[in-house]
Design a protein around this nucleic acid. Structure first.
Lengths: 341, 341
DNA sequence: CAAATCACCCAAAGCGCTTTGGTTTTTCAA
DNA sequence: TTGAAAAACCAAAGCGCTTTGGGTGATTTG
């Protein structure tokens, strides 16, 4: 069923049908009802492809998921972020277009999206420090919102980020307050903006208390469970093991917990752990007694909001950038306690 | 830059440009080179929307991600599956269209996809027993591949599944061989096909050894970490705790491990655990010494292959269904040992 | 009561491609 | 040298919508 046959069936012009369905005022209420009823009856829906060509809008938002070709890892927060964003898109009648690409093909993917017109905007995932994608997208004139942000010029584009620096500063302070002096940091890849900021927050807190950051206690890698396990294991077997560990990801913290258990130590007594928690749906940190003390922020809400910001900036068409910095929640759980003497 | 202006620049017809770029034979090699060079120079790429209207193909595959509105949970395997599928799509020049929808809106979503023509086919995620989506898609004439399958008529459509029954039967046998007599099952939602089959495998193994399945030892719920923790905790505090636990998801197994640790017991000695392992990229079960004894199958490979099957069936256009049943790998890890006496 | 306005509807022109059905050149065997 | 076949190109017709720019009666307005 297409417009033409439907219009013939109803004895109306295609124009009128189109207007009736799109709620234009130039059509009488009676006709509109008749048209809508017929559309329902014949299960007619405008062909998306034709609609998009005619309107010049793709009605789709692109998400480019970069994949480091060495690790081939998909960020576990991705599913929840997408779920949040998906909600916003559904509401607005937009589609979500996903491209999983190798790091090196990312630029080409954006260029292609822009010149082929397959999307009206994109969400940028996992920004690095001074991320070149930002300038690229600005040149291409493709609307975008960054989940996170990128050190450098932060005022010229839209982003939504959590306050990573402050968040880890507070977490470090909490551990210092508990008397911990040797605090390890298991951070994400520090070429990424969020990880760099978290390290700054951690180091700032230490310095303010007169501790010099100890480079033998900080680690930076992709945040897998195994990274947490192996690093913590090595640390705990060392000569002067830390009494507290600050971790950038819940998954990695699980690995840390495993190592602590294996070493016959008790989490929260022998070793304290604070982790960041993205509030993933399948990995809730307990609403009653959180099993980890954590800095929490819902990545799903972030997804929802990023999408909203992008859709709105597309709708209004003004290039006015929107920035949102969310504070995290510092939740006390069972994984922290006073430093052992 | 569009076809028209490019053709004017080159003094050729739009037809010739189009054919040159699409490698049709009706164009001289010299011209083809000239056209391709010009396209590169002016950064011309055919407009996707126009191309799709003209060809009548969407060049996109839909993934409908159902979300149970009570739990609002995104399946953690989703990211890896998508990554795998994405690879296949990229290779073939297809886009991936994601819709995150509430369970109840799923039928409407499929209907809309079919009548709007926004995709050429879909992947069905998380099939239930006698899943109504299968009949729906067949009626709609929308090509599809099911990740998993649905009890009932299994020969009339394409699917790719792992041998869940056999897999859990083997896992149960392993535990029985180790002398375990009280084996608990922490299963996924048993209205889902995979979970139902796993239970059957588990029960079959028990019965074959003369044990009657004990309904106080089996649990079925969404596979979160918390489900694992709380259920295991309760079990271990009970009068006659199981000596072994069979778990349907790695994430849930992590919760089980946490409960075992909390109870002051040792995994693999006091309590044995076998879990299914989807081989998620951020949660590798160790290539050297797996921390869990597990039935493993890569969900990423499954994604890759599902996409291939779908693309191929779209390309050939024959309705010949393809079915693949993958065996899982039973990996011995540290989490199992002889039943304590 | 004529003129202006309004409410409704329509024909046709795009949107930017692909593809059909030619036409014009070249090539090559007879 | 000629005629047929092959090679290379082109004009124009879709694809299925939206939107522009009218029309045509009915209703107000001065």
């Amino acid at each position: 069923m297409n417009l033409k046959t439907l219009s013939e069936k109803l004895g109306l012009s295609q124009t009128t049908i189109s207007r009736a369905l799109n709620d234009y005022p130039e059509v009488s209420e009676a006709t509109r009802q008749r048209v809508k009823a017929a559309a329902l009856k014949y299960n007619y829906r405008p062909n998306t492809r034709a609609q998009r060509l005619a309107t010049g809008r793709a009605m789709a938002i692109g998400h480019v998921i970069p994949m480091s070709n060495n690790q081939e890892m998909v960020n576990p927060i991705f599913g929840d972020f997408i779920a949040g964003a998906g909600e916003s898109y559904s509401k607005a009648g937009y589609d979500m277009l996903l491209s999983v690409v190798q790091d090196k093909d990312e630029e080409a993917t954006y260029r292609a999206m822009a010149s082929k017109g397959s999307v009206d905007g994109v969400i940028v995932h996992g920004p690095h420090k001074n991320d070149p994608r930002i300038k690229l997208l600005q040149e291409l004139g493709l609307p975008f919102v960054v989940h996170g942000r990128s050190m450098g010029d932060e005022t010229s584009y839209s982003w939504l980020d959590i306050n990573n620096g402050r968040s880890f500063q507070r977490a470090t302070n909490l551990l210092l307050d508990l008397g911990h002096k040797r605090i390890a940091l298991l951070n994400g890849d520090e070429t990424m903006d969020f990880a760099a900021r978290r390290r700054s927050g951690y180091e700032d807190a230490l310095r303010k208390r007169g501790f010099a950051p100890d480079s033998t206690l900080t680690f930076s890698a992709e945040m897998t469970e195994q990274f947490g396990y192996e690093t913590a294991k090595r640390l705990l077997q060392g000569m002067r093991p830390p009494t507290a560990i600050l971790v950038s990801s819940y998954i990695t913290a699980i690995g840390v917990r495993r190592a602590i258990g294996r070493a016959g130590l008790m989490l929260g007594r022998d070793v304290s752990v604070v982790t960041h928690d993205d509030d993933l749906s399948y990995l809730r940190n307990g609403d009653d007694i959180p099993s980890f003390t954590a800095t929490r922020s819902s990545v799903r809400n972030a997804g929802r909001r990023c999408a909203e910001i992008l859709l709105q900036s597309i709708a209004t068409g003004n290039g006015q950038p929107v920035q949102e910095l969310w504070e995290t929640e510092l939740m006390l759980g069972d994984s922290t306690g006073p430093a052992p003497s």
